[in-house]
Amino acid sequence: MTDVSAAEAPSDRRSKMQVSDEVAIQITNMNKWYGDFHVLRDINLTVYRGERIVICGPSGSGKSTMIRCINRLEEHQKGTIEVEGIELTNDLKNIDRIRSEVGMCFQHFNLFPHLTILENCTLAPIWVRKVPKKEAEDTAMHFLEKVKIPDQAKKYPGQLSGGQQQRVAIARSLCMKPRIMLFDEPTSALDPEMIKEVLDTMIELAEEGMTMLCVTHEMGFAQAVANRVIFMDAGQIVEQNEPKEFFNNPQSERTQLFLSQILGH
Protein backbone atom coordinates (compact mmCIF):
# COMPACT_ATOMS: atom_id res chain seq x y z
CA MET A 1 0.00 0.00 0.00
CA THR A 2 1.29 3.40 -0.86
CA ASP A 3 1.28 6.34 1.48
CA VAL A 4 -1.56 8.73 1.21
CA SER A 5 -0.34 11.88 -0.37
CA ALA A 6 -0.14 14.32 2.44
CA ALA A 7 0.45 17.14 0.01
CA GLU A 8 -3.13 17.42 -1.18
CA ALA A 9 -3.97 19.14 2.08
CA PRO A 10 -7.54 18.82 3.24
CA SER A 11 -9.54 21.87 4.13
CA ASP A 12 -10.25 23.50 7.53
CA ARG A 13 -7.79 23.61 10.45
CA ARG A 14 -5.57 20.84 9.13
CA SER A 15 -4.44 23.03 6.29
CA LYS A 16 -2.37 25.07 8.72
CA MET A 17 -0.34 22.05 9.69
CA GLN A 18 2.49 21.46 7.29
CA VAL A 19 3.87 18.07 6.43
CA SER A 20 7.35 18.08 4.98
CA ASP A 21 9.06 15.48 2.77
CA GLU A 22 11.64 14.81 5.45
CA VAL A 23 11.32 11.28 6.76
CA ALA A 24 11.01 11.05 10.54
CA ILE A 25 10.41 7.34 10.93
CA GLN A 26 10.98 4.62 8.38
CA ILE A 27 9.76 1.13 9.19
CA THR A 28 10.58 -1.51 6.61
CA ASN A 29 9.37 -5.12 6.59
CA MET A 30 9.27 -5.16 10.35
CA ASN A 31 8.25 -8.40 12.09
CA LYS A 32 7.97 -9.22 15.73
CA TRP A 33 7.26 -12.36 17.68
CA TYR A 34 6.36 -12.96 21.33
CA GLY A 35 7.85 -16.42 21.69
CA ASP A 36 6.10 -18.33 18.90
CA PHE A 37 3.32 -15.80 18.50
CA HIS A 38 3.76 -13.65 15.39
CA VAL A 39 2.41 -10.40 16.77
CA LEU A 40 3.53 -7.94 14.07
CA ARG A 41 3.61 -9.07 10.46
CA ASP A 42 5.43 -7.26 7.72
CA ILE A 43 4.90 -3.70 8.87
CA ASN A 44 5.88 -0.97 6.40
CA LEU A 45 5.36 2.62 7.40
CA THR A 46 6.95 5.92 6.52
CA VAL A 47 6.23 8.86 8.75
CA TYR A 48 7.11 12.34 7.47
CA ARG A 49 8.00 15.20 9.74
CA GLY A 50 4.93 17.03 10.95
CA GLU A 51 2.53 14.17 10.34
CA ARG A 52 -0.27 13.39 12.81
CA ILE A 53 -1.06 9.72 12.51
CA VAL A 54 -3.86 8.01 14.36
CA ILE A 55 -3.64 4.24 14.74
CA CYS A 56 -6.76 2.27 15.50
CA GLY A 57 -7.88 -1.30 15.41
CA PRO A 58 -9.42 -4.00 17.57
CA SER A 59 -7.96 -4.96 20.93
CA GLY A 60 -4.93 -7.21 20.62
CA SER A 61 -4.21 -6.18 17.05
CA GLY A 62 -0.69 -5.02 17.93
CA LYS A 63 -1.11 -1.24 17.99
CA SER A 64 0.72 -0.79 21.29
CA THR A 65 3.39 -3.24 20.29
CA MET A 66 4.05 -1.38 17.06
CA ILE A 67 4.50 2.05 18.54
CA ARG A 68 6.51 0.64 21.43
CA CYS A 69 8.93 -0.81 18.90
CA ILE A 70 9.64 2.72 17.70
CA ASN A 71 11.39 3.65 20.94
CA ARG A 72 12.57 0.16 21.70
CA LEU A 73 10.33 -0.58 24.62
CA GLU A 74 9.82 -3.72 22.57
CA GLU A 75 12.44 -5.32 20.37
CA HIS A 76 11.62 -6.32 16.80
CA GLN A 77 13.19 -9.42 15.31
CA LYS A 78 13.12 -8.80 11.57
CA GLY A 79 13.21 -5.80 9.28
CA THR A 80 14.45 -2.32 10.12
CA ILE A 81 13.24 0.70 12.01
CA GLU A 82 14.96 4.02 11.42
CA VAL A 83 14.13 6.98 13.60
CA GLU A 84 15.55 10.37 12.66
CA GLY A 85 17.99 8.55 10.44
CA ILE A 86 19.30 6.36 13.25
CA GLU A 87 18.71 2.65 12.89
CA LEU A 88 17.47 0.79 15.96
CA THR A 89 19.90 -2.01 16.71
CA ASN A 90 21.22 -3.48 19.93
CA ASP A 91 23.58 -0.53 20.26
CA LEU A 92 22.58 1.00 23.59
CA LYS A 93 23.93 4.42 22.66
CA ASN A 94 21.64 4.60 19.63
CA ILE A 95 18.69 3.42 21.67
CA ASP A 96 19.28 6.10 24.30
CA ARG A 97 19.68 8.73 21.59
CA ILE A 98 16.43 7.75 19.93
CA ARG A 99 14.58 7.59 23.24
CA SER A 100 15.64 11.10 24.10
CA GLU A 101 14.30 12.31 20.73
CA VAL A 102 11.02 10.43 21.01
CA GLY A 103 8.55 11.28 23.74
CA MET A 104 5.91 8.83 24.87
CA CYS A 105 2.67 9.05 26.82
CA PHE A 106 1.09 5.96 28.28
CA GLN A 107 -2.42 4.90 29.10
CA HIS A 108 -1.61 4.89 32.81
CA PHE A 109 0.60 8.01 32.72
CA ASN A 110 3.58 6.30 34.42
CA LEU A 111 4.47 9.41 36.37
CA PHE A 112 7.01 8.93 39.16
CA PRO A 113 4.95 9.01 42.36
CA HIS A 114 7.88 9.81 44.67
CA LEU A 115 8.75 13.03 42.82
CA THR A 116 6.82 16.26 42.61
CA ILE A 117 5.29 17.35 39.32
CA LEU A 118 8.19 19.72 38.76
CA GLU A 119 10.77 17.05 39.58
CA ASN A 120 9.01 14.63 37.24
CA CYS A 121 9.49 17.17 34.49
CA THR A 122 13.11 18.11 35.22
CA LEU A 123 14.48 14.63 35.93
CA ALA A 124 15.31 13.58 32.38
CA PRO A 125 16.54 16.98 31.11
CA ILE A 126 18.94 17.18 34.07
CA TRP A 127 20.26 13.62 33.89
CA VAL A 128 20.04 12.85 30.19
CA ARG A 129 20.47 16.24 28.56
CA LYS A 130 22.70 17.59 31.38
CA VAL A 131 20.74 20.82 31.49
CA PRO A 132 21.46 23.01 34.57
CA LYS A 133 18.77 22.62 37.23
CA LYS A 134 17.55 26.21 37.03
CA GLU A 135 17.18 26.10 33.29
CA ALA A 136 15.41 22.73 33.45
CA GLU A 137 12.95 24.15 35.96
CA ASP A 138 12.23 27.15 33.76
CA THR A 139 11.58 24.87 30.80
CA ALA A 140 9.38 22.64 32.94
CA MET A 141 7.32 25.60 34.14
CA HIS A 142 6.96 26.75 30.57
CA PHE A 143 5.47 23.42 29.50
CA LEU A 144 3.37 23.08 32.64
CA GLU A 145 1.88 26.43 31.78
CA LYS A 146 1.26 25.16 28.31
CA VAL A 147 -0.72 22.21 29.60
CA LYS A 148 -2.40 24.64 32.03
CA ILE A 149 -1.28 23.27 35.39
CA PRO A 150 1.63 25.45 36.55
CA ASP A 151 -0.01 25.84 39.97
CA GLN A 152 0.33 22.10 40.65
CA ALA A 153 4.11 22.06 40.25
CA LYS A 154 4.86 21.42 43.91
CA LYS A 155 2.31 18.62 44.31
CA TYR A 156 2.82 14.90 43.94
CA PRO A 157 1.20 12.92 41.11
CA GLY A 158 -1.06 11.10 43.57
CA GLN A 159 -2.69 14.42 44.46
CA LEU A 160 -3.79 15.19 40.88
CA SER A 161 -6.79 14.07 38.87
CA GLY A 162 -6.31 11.62 36.01
CA GLY A 163 -6.63 14.29 33.34
CA GLN A 164 -4.12 16.50 35.13
CA GLN A 165 -1.73 13.57 35.48
CA GLN A 166 -1.90 12.83 31.78
CA ARG A 167 -1.21 16.46 30.97
CA VAL A 168 1.78 16.36 33.30
CA ALA A 169 2.96 13.26 31.46
CA ILE A 170 2.72 15.18 28.18
CA ALA A 171 4.61 18.12 29.68
CA ARG A 172 7.23 15.76 31.06
CA SER A 173 7.85 14.36 27.57
CA LEU A 174 7.91 17.82 26.02
CA CYS A 175 10.60 18.95 28.45
CA MET A 176 13.00 16.67 26.58
CA LYS A 177 12.20 18.72 23.44
CA PRO A 178 11.34 15.59 21.47
CA ARG A 179 10.97 15.65 17.71
CA ILE A 180 8.37 12.87 17.73
CA MET A 181 5.63 12.08 20.21
CA LEU A 182 4.04 8.67 20.67
CA PHE A 183 0.71 8.30 22.47
CA ASP A 184 -0.65 4.92 23.54
CA GLU A 185 -4.33 5.34 24.36
CA PRO A 186 -3.69 8.50 26.38
CA THR A 187 -7.36 9.03 27.21
CA SER A 188 -8.73 5.54 27.71
CA ALA A 189 -8.13 5.51 31.47
CA LEU A 190 -9.90 8.84 31.93
CA ASP A 191 -13.40 9.92 32.80
CA PRO A 192 -15.28 11.59 29.92
CA GLU A 193 -14.96 15.11 31.28
CA MET A 194 -11.20 14.76 31.54
CA ILE A 195 -10.75 13.38 28.05
CA LYS A 196 -11.40 16.75 26.50
CA GLU A 197 -8.69 18.57 28.45
CA VAL A 198 -6.10 16.02 27.35
CA LEU A 199 -7.25 16.02 23.73
CA ASP A 200 -7.15 19.82 23.67
CA THR A 201 -3.54 19.69 24.79
CA MET A 202 -2.75 17.19 22.06
CA ILE A 203 -4.51 19.25 19.41
CA GLU A 204 -2.48 22.28 20.41
CA LEU A 205 0.66 20.21 20.09
CA ALA A 206 -0.36 19.06 16.64
CA GLU A 207 -0.98 22.61 15.52
CA GLU A 208 2.58 23.48 16.45
CA GLY A 209 3.79 20.91 13.97
CA MET A 210 4.84 18.07 16.26
CA THR A 211 5.19 14.70 14.55
CA MET A 212 2.69 12.50 16.36
CA LEU A 213 1.71 8.85 16.35
CA CYS A 214 -1.34 8.25 18.42
CA VAL A 215 -3.11 5.02 19.26
CA THR A 216 -6.62 6.07 20.15
CA HIS A 217 -10.26 5.34 19.65
CA GLU A 218 -11.22 8.99 19.81
CA MET A 219 -12.50 9.25 16.28
CA GLY A 220 -13.43 12.88 16.71
CA PHE A 221 -9.81 13.61 17.45
CA ALA A 222 -8.74 11.63 14.41
CA GLN A 223 -11.06 13.60 12.17
CA ALA A 224 -10.01 16.94 13.60
CA VAL A 225 -6.25 16.50 13.74
CA ALA A 226 -4.95 13.47 11.90
CA ASN A 227 -3.65 13.69 8.38
CA ARG A 228 -3.59 9.91 8.17
CA VAL A 229 -5.45 7.09 9.92
CA ILE A 230 -3.98 3.62 10.10
CA PHE A 231 -6.12 0.59 10.78
CA MET A 232 -4.43 -2.50 12.18
CA ASP A 233 -5.81 -5.95 12.59
CA ALA A 234 -4.14 -9.20 13.65
CA GLY A 235 -0.68 -7.71 13.58
CA GLN A 236 -0.89 -6.12 10.12
CA ILE A 237 -1.58 -2.70 8.73
CA VAL A 238 -4.81 -3.39 6.89
CA GLU A 239 -5.71 0.04 5.64
CA GLN A 240 -4.50 3.58 5.80
CA ASN A 241 -6.01 6.69 4.38
CA GLU A 242 -6.70 10.32 4.85
CA PRO A 243 -9.33 10.63 7.64
CA LYS A 244 -12.28 11.78 5.57
CA GLU A 245 -11.82 8.93 3.11
CA PHE A 246 -11.06 6.47 5.88
CA PHE A 247 -14.29 7.13 7.74
CA ASN A 248 -16.61 7.78 4.80
CA ASN A 249 -15.31 5.26 2.39
CA PRO A 250 -13.43 2.42 4.07
CA GLN A 251 -12.07 -0.08 1.57
CA SER A 252 -11.44 -3.27 3.48
CA GLU A 253 -14.17 -5.36 5.01
CA ARG A 254 -12.41 -5.54 8.33
CA THR A 255 -12.22 -1.77 8.53
CA GLN A 256 -15.88 -1.47 7.71
CA LEU A 257 -16.76 -3.94 10.43
CA PHE A 258 -14.54 -2.17 12.97
CA LEU A 259 -15.93 1.24 12.14
CA SER A 260 -19.50 0.03 12.27
CA GLN A 261 -18.79 -1.38 15.72
CA ILE A 262 -17.26 1.71 17.22
CA LEU A 263 -19.33 4.31 15.42
CA GLY A 264 -22.49 2.29 14.98
CA HIS A 265 -24.28 2.59 18.27
Partner: peptide, 12 residues
Protein backbone atom coordinates in the same frame (compact mmCIF):
# COMPACT_ATOMS: atom_id res chain seq x y z
CA UNK B 1 5.25 1.23 33.97
CA UNK B 2 7.86 2.95 36.13
CA UNK B 3 10.69 1.36 34.15
CA UNK B 4 8.97 2.24 30.88
CA UNK B 5 8.41 5.80 32.01
CA UNK B 6 12.11 6.09 32.71
CA UNK B 7 13.16 4.30 29.53
CA UNK B 8 10.94 6.40 27.30
CA UNK B 9 12.67 9.52 28.63
CA UNK B 10 16.06 8.13 27.66
CA UNK B 11 17.36 7.40 31.17
CA UNK B 12 20.02 4.71 31.28
Amino acid sequence: GQYEGGMSLGLS
